[in-house]
């Protein structure tokens, strides 16, 4: 299990246990964390699982591929340096995720 903390735009935070091998998106959806819609169920085609990762964690994560990059250009909330698609991120111990204000 990996502990992942999801912080909402209003400042509230939830920490949940996510099985290793699961995605950060799955971890949110299965635990009822708000704000990660994941309309396409992890297919990397909808960009409604957009999240912000703090800088310290970005180095540990897999790089952004072309498809993810294209989707990050059209997210509903602004793209920032820490922007990622949660369905493309493996659960890792201690990750802190900031959930954007809107996904649509």
């Amino acid at each position: 299990m990996a502990h992942i903390t999801y912080k909402q735009a209003d400042g509230t935070a939830t920490t949940v246990d996510v099985p290793v091998g699961c995605s950060v998106m799955r971890g949110a959806v299965d635990n009822g964390v708000d704000g990660i819609l994941a309309e396409c169920g992890g297919g990397a085609i909808c960009a409604t699982c957009h999240v912000y990762i703090d800088e310290a964690s970005t180095a540990k994560l897999p790089p952004i591929d072309d498809l993810e990059d294209e989707l990050l250009q059209v997210t509903a909330s602004p793209r920032l340096p820490g922007s990622r698609l949660a369905c493309q991120l493996p659960a890792m111990e201690g990750l802190v995720i900031l959930v954007p204000e809107k996904q649509l």
């Binding site: 990397a44 085609i45 909808c46 960009a47 498809l67 294209e70 989707l71 250009q73 059209v74």
Partner: peptide
């Protein structure tokens, strides 16, 4: 086809 940004916009 393989242009997801077009789809979303």
């Amino acid at each position: 086809v393989n242009r997801p940004a077009d789809h979303i916009i």
